[in-house]
């Protein structure tokens, strides 16, 4: 044991570490510093202003609103992308007899939205979610008119609508990761469980889920980061509107940069980083612990 441990050398980490530190960590540290300056396009000199930008952020109702929206959006997408992704992965893995092509067909179709540019998503879903669009048309046709809404206009639901589009786009992507995990589970585990007389739900609970912990971790972390740093769906569907009702942190960052307020923009980015780190790192630690136990 000791013999081999000595064989693993940290030199192997160096290539990755070198480019990562030079091209990511270093700029990030410079960015952290900029977030404490009044750096703005066109001013003559840049001054250190301490925590002024952060004070500004936490006193600005619009920016606070964007933080709130970021949370709502994140919670919804994490829960549903994972539930749906997992369900799809299990479903497209169900033995359909000799009809393997059926499984492959579903796997491909569900993955398709992930490869499509958000520009398309924006223009297409703007029409589908239009008050006279396909979705409301469908709801009215099947007698569910009471569910028909102003999907992207009603400020109470706009964040959920955007989250739903994101779920539409990315569930298949998460399905693919779950699927890779499920297919990595050896068949004999299931056969043993079947001999023990386990029902298919029991097999799911006692074999699939525990052995799938690594995939679950990846998917939860990925969707969490995707939610907190989510940008393109919001940008393409409403760009924060109507008014400021669907602004999230990342769209505010773009807006601040667009106004040439780089100090404030980087400060918002720093807030985002702290927020993401505070949520994700403890979660990751906990999940790693579970993974070992599993």
């Amino acid at each position: 044991m000791k013999e081999t441990t000595r064989l693993y050398s940290y030199y192997w980490v160096l290539p990755a570490l070198a480019i990562y530190v030079l091209l990511f960590i270093l700029p990030m540290v410079i960015g952290l510093y900029s977030s404490m300056t009044d750096w703005t396009m066109g001013i003559d000199s840049i001054h250190f202003v301490g925590l002024d930008n952060f004070r500004f952020i936490f006193n600005d109702a619009e920016l606070l609103g964007s933080i709130g929206n970021t949370f709502i959006y994140t919670i919804v997408v994490v829960v549903f992308k994972n539930l749906i992704g997992f369900f799809l992965a299990v479903a497209v893995n169900v033995d359909m007899g000799k009809r393997v092509r059926v499984n492959n067909f579903f796997r491909t179709v569900f993955y398709l939205p992930a490869v499509v540019s958000t520009i398309v998503i924006g223009i297409v879903f703007t029409r589908i979610l239009h008050p006279d669009g396909l979705l409301n048309g469908f709801l009215n046709a099947v007698g569910l008119s009471f569910l028909a809404k102003d999907w992207l206009i009603d400020t109470k639901i706009v964040m959920f609508t955007i989250a739903a589009v994101s779920i539409w786009q990315w569930s298949g992507y998460h399905m693919a990761i779950y699927l890779a995990g499920i297919q990595g589970i050896p068949k004999d585990y299931y056969e043993a469980a079947m001999i023990d007389g386990a029902s298919s739900f029991q097999r799911l609970r006692n074999v699939t889920v525990p052995l799938l912990m690594p995939s679950i971790n990846i998917n939860v972390i990925l969707s969490l980061i995707g939610g907190l740093k989510g940008f393109s769906e919001v940008y393409a569907l409403t760009n924060g509107g109507p008014g400021h009702s669907s602004q999230v942190l990342t769209t505010e960052v773009l807006a601040k940069f667009g106004e040439g307020r780089w100090g404030l923009g980087t400060a918002l980015n720093t807030v985002l980083l702290i927020l993401v780190a505070v949520i994700c790192i403890p979660l990751l630690r906990e999940m790693r612990r579970q993974e070992v136990e599993a």
């Binding site: 924060g240 509107g241 008014g243 400021h244 807006a255 106004e259």
Partner: peptide, 19 residues
């Protein structure tokens, strides 16, 4: 002298009856 995008967003609030 400044970017007016925020004002334009407030117009949407007016159209929507919020402001």
């Amino acid at each position: 002298k400044v970017d007016m995008n925020d004002l334009w967003k407030y117009y949407q609030d007016m159209i929507g009856g919020v402001k």
